[in-house]
């Protein structure tokens, strides 16, 4: 009797194990199929529709949560910083005295800057501003490896895939996906992100590649002279309009024989705290037909094509 019950229990356990194993294998296979399908459709088709649907459904919830959390986070930030305000005040007084001295030197730098802007064929900021919209960041990435942000504006406002995103400090990234009411921005620091850049004043062209951290890697196979720390890094007309500030060269570097130059860039943007950004209605294919991009050396593989 007892033996019969034991064998029955063993059979049930085995059946249950087989069922859960089958479910496990099915779910893993389904996941792999989804990944493959997503790659093949390049985020479009059914997968794109699914993403659009999920975003449309959850956008209002994410916006509401952000609206509630933002003031609390700001208040906490304020409290944390309260202790440091007095010393910061003293430091700012000293900085003000320094700034007055530097102001005198600024005039000469301003005239130099005008010359550099001409050299770099920069678009006028006014032109960019008139073809742009301001959006609010309503969510961040889904994990520590997902270096993206979600904006509260989408295709209804004229936002399209590939458009550059900036804030007051400089280039933030580009639009990666769009729904009618929201859009996702791939940040400049994402390891999958590379942008053609030009240094000023050395005038070297290369790429700024994301490293997943707070700095970027600058690579140029064309540089045949040294690069100095502090050089300004701006976009080269390619995927983005020319002259958007990317950052400054973090450390000086000398070209290695036959290997060009490599160094790091401090991005102008603080990616930790992004609240408002500006999306520029610039698309490489459409806009570069109108303007003449600067000459790119076809032999230079470090300059990505859109």
């Amino acid at each position: 009797m007892l033996g019969g019950l034991t064998s029955k229990s063993t059979v049930l356990t085995n059946q249950r194990f087989a069922r859960s194993t089958a479910l496990f294998i099915s779910l893993i296979t389904l996941s792999f199929l989804l990944m493959t399908f997503d790659i093949r459709t390049e985020g479009g088709g059914v997968i794109g529709t699914l993403r659009d649907g999920a975003r449309t459904l959850f956008d209002p919830v994410q916006s509401a949560v952000t609206a509630v959390v933002r003031p609390v986070a700001d208040a906490v930030d304020g409290l944390v910083n309260l202790a440091g305000l007095r010393s910061e005040n003293d430091r700012l007084r000293e900085q003000l005295e320094d700034a007055n001295r530097i102001l005198v030197e600024t005039e000469s730098i301003r005239s130099e800057n005008e010359v550099l802007r001409e050299l770099l064929q920069l678009e006028l900021p006014g032109e960019l501003l008139s073809r742009s919209t301001v959006a609010r960041v309503q969510a961040g990435g889904s994990s520590n490896f997902d270096l993206s942000i979600v904006l509260d504006k989408g295709a209804d406002e004229g936002i399209a895939i590939g458009q550059p995103v900036v804030n007051l400090q400089g280039l933030v990234g580009h639009i990666e996906t769009v729904t009618s009411q929201s859009s996702t921005v791939k940040l400049l620091i994402d390891p999958d992100h590379a942008v053609a850049v030009r240094l000023a004043p050395s005038d070297y062209v290369g790429t700024a590649e994301g490293r997943g951290s707070s700095d970027l890697k600058f690579v140029s196979s064309r540089a045949d002279g040294p690069v100095a720390a502090g050089e300004v890094v701006v976009t080269f007309p390619n995927r983005y309009p020319a002259g958007l500030v990317v950052g400054t060269v973090a450390r000086s570097a000398e070209p290695a024989a036959g290997a060009g130059i490599q160094t790091t860039i401090d991005p102008a943007v603080d990616f930790e705290r992004l609240d408002f950004v500006r999306v520029i209605f610039f698309l490489p294919d459409a806009d570069q037909g109108e303007e003449e991009p600067a000459e790119v050396d076809p032999a230079d593989e470090s300059v990505p094509t859109p």
Binding site: L30, S31, F32, L33, L34, M35, F37, D38, I39, I47, L50, R51, A54, R55, F58, Q62, A139, G141, S142, S143, F145, D146, S148, V150, E176, T177, T184, K186
Partner: peptide, 9 residues
């Protein structure tokens, strides 16, 4: 995956 910017799955 759907709400993030990662590969679906």
């Amino acid at each position: 995956d759907l709400l993030g910017n990662t590969l679906l799955g």
